[in-house]
Computed example of a mutant assay.
Amino acid sequence: MEKILKLGIPKGSLQNATINLFKRSGWQINVEGRSYFPDINDDSIECALCRAQEMSINVESGIIDAGLTGLDWVAEHESDVHVVADLIYSKVSARPARWVIAVAGDSPVNTVEDLAGMTISTELVQFTRRFFQKRNINVNVKFSWGATEAKIVSGLADAIVEITETESTIRAHNLKVIHEVMETNTQLIANKKAWEDPKKREKIEQIAMLLQSALVADKMVGIKMNVPENKIARIVGLLPSLNGPTVAPLYQSDWFSVESIIDTGYVRDLIPRLLKEGAEGIIEYPLNKVL
């Protein structure tokens, strides 16, 4: 089969989460050893591993037709790419991450204006420079190769601009956040010429649709139960659902089978209430996709 699309998979911290997301969406990606070209169970796709920091550059240039990377790295390089879909997932949680400015916990610095004349360490160099230039604040921005939080502790920087989801690492280094500069999440981006190609665009849209459906399914579960006829109205009234629960009579019985799709955060409180109201044989099951 003809290869239609060259797809970039982010190498590094997001790699496993991305491969797991594709698996739930129907694609099996196998990374063997140090190969930068994983196998995928779709003959129309060629995969390439690429660091998230470089993905938008390679997509913009056309080396890769489409790929997954953070909004932060698109912004860092001011890449001229087509954003196909927002995909909120990460190695830690299903919520956007934040780039923040942090200083030592005992620092007198409390605002971005207080940083004038100081040194800031970050991996997001160009974006950080533009951030302060727009505010006419003169700072010295230095690139950090990693362990950015330690730069303040070791005296190499007065402040850092660093990404965080829970702020646990920042707090562990006795730092305090004084400002949030950006909220970021993973995005599926495409080369603009590739997006204009009907075959490539159809494939990219298929990937976007199934990845998003898998992410929606992550937040929901299916629930099924048996309910006596005299309790059906009360039980159905307790059930949130996408379009209303499915209710079907059981064979030669005055009982009904009731099935619904609900939010995972709601089910733990719902099940005890359903049992109390007379539901029996309750089954909770995971979902792969919700379209």
Rank of each mutant, 00 (worst) to 15 (best):
I40E: 08
A248S: 14
V139E: 09
A208D: 03
V100W: 03
A104H: 06
E202S: 12
E277D: 12
M55W: 05
I207W: 06
L71S: 15
I235V: 14
K6E: 05
N16R: 15
A233P: 08
E167C: 07
N58H: 15
L188C: 02
V247Y: 06
A190N: 05
E180D: 07
K200I: 12
H173R: 13
A17G: 14
K219N: 12
E32S: 15
G67H: 05
I152Q: 01
L188Q: 03
R34A: 15
P10D: 04
D39L: 09
S56Y: 04
D158L: 02
D42F: 11
G281K: 11
F132E: 07
V103W: 03
E78H: 12
K176H: 09
L156P: 00
S25K: 14
L87E: 05
S257E: 15
R98P: 00
V258C: 04
V161K: 01
E162I: 12
F22E: 06
A159R: 02
R273L: 02
S144R: 02
E2Y: 07
G281V: 01
S213Q: 10
E78P: 01
V247I: 14
D114M: 04
I204Q: 12
G265Y: 09
T18L: 08
T246A: 13
T128K: 04
K231S: 13
R273K: 11
K203F: 07
M118K: 14
P96T: 03
V216Y: 10
I283T: 13
T246Q: 14
A172R: 13
K203G: 09
Y251R: 10
V177S: 03
K192C: 04
A194F: 07
I120L: 01
S79F: 08
T119N: 06
L239P: 09
V258P: 06
